[in-house]
Each structure stands twice: as C-alpha cells, then as structure tokens.
C-alpha cells in the first residue's frame, strides 16, 4: 500500500513539523494547555502519518518496535524515578523538590497572571517529558501492531 511520491514527500515534510509541535506541547506543558499525554499523542500522530504514507515493510525498517518498547519502558521508569528521588532527599513521595529551589526549572512564580517563564515548575517539566516519551512510544507501537494485523489479513 505504498502511496505516490507526492504523498510521501508531503509526509516527510509534515513529519518534522508535527514532531516539533508535539515537543513544544510536551515542553510547555506547565505553561500552556497541554502536557505529556497530549504532546505524546501528537508525536504518535506523526508516526501514524509516516505509516500511512509508506508501506508496512518500509516502515518496519524506519521505526523499530524494540526501540519504541524501550522508549515506553524508559518513560515509565523515568516518571517513577523522578518521584522516587524525593524519597532519597528525605521528603515524601512525589514531593516537588525542585520548585522554588533556583536549580533546574527552579525559578519561583508570584501569584497572579504573568507571561510565563520556561524555567519554572520544578519536577513537573521532567515528569511531562517522561510521560510524553511513554505515551509516544506506547501509541506508536499500538498503531504499528494493528497495522501488522491488517497486512496479514489482506494477504490471506
């Protein structure tokens, strides 16, 4: 089911734009509407676009199932690990130990409407990135496996 050259070129161009938009949503999850889940879903949409434009065999060479599974697992482990570090610091599980600390993502925010500063939020941007990696890998691997079932059904 390989599409024409025009469709494939458009998919190549749009894939970068979708990727950048998804990363923007993930990274700005603590400032604008969005976050890890939504941004991960957008990035997975980019993977779906590539899968639609190319044939299944070509996609298998471009996107590795093992790599996606590794991304999904790494996202979940990173999410739990960021929360577990708080236990090592002597506070409670899921404590926001980076907020208002002046370190990474550590700028404090006064109460009230403001333009928004990327270097805020404490552990929330880290958790957004972890969840984004997990959702991206998970949804992409679901799409890839469902496509594998379809291709086998058409051959039979």
């Amino acid at each position: 089911m390989r599409m024409s050259k025009i469709v494939r070129f458009s998919a190549d161009v749009l894939f970068g734009a979708i990727l950048i938009f998804g990363f923007y949503i993930i990274l700005h999850g603590h400032l604008t509407p969005g976050g890890g889940f939504q941004g991960g879903a957008v990035v997975a949409t980019g993977a779906a676009l590539v899968i639609v434009a190319y044939s299944y065999e070509e996609v298998l060479h471009m996107i590795k199932k093992a790599g996606l599974m590794l991304q999904e697992s790494a996202g979940l482990v990173m999410f739990a690990g960021v929360a577990l570090i708080a236990l090592g610091l002597g506070t409670t599980f899921f404590f926001n130990y980076l907020a208002n600390s002046g370190l990474l993502f550590g700028m404090s925010v006064p109460f009230g409407p403001n333009p928004g500063e990327l270097n805020t939020g404490g552990v929330l941007p880290l958790m957004n990135i972890a969840v984004g990696i997990e959702v991206w890998g998970g949804l992409a691997i679901v799409i890839l496996y469902m496509l594998s079932g379809i291709s086998k059904a058409e051959e039979a």
């Binding site: 509407p33 925010v109 409407p113 403001n114 333009p115």
Partner: peptide, 11 residues
C-alpha cells in the same frame, strides 16, 4: 476560564 495563569484574563 481555564485554570492557567499564563496571560489569564480574569481570576
């Protein structure tokens, strides 16, 4: 409005 303080119009 949505509970986001970035350029929020009201509280």
């Amino acid at each position: 409005i949505a509970p986001i303080y970035t350029y929020a119009a009201s509280e």
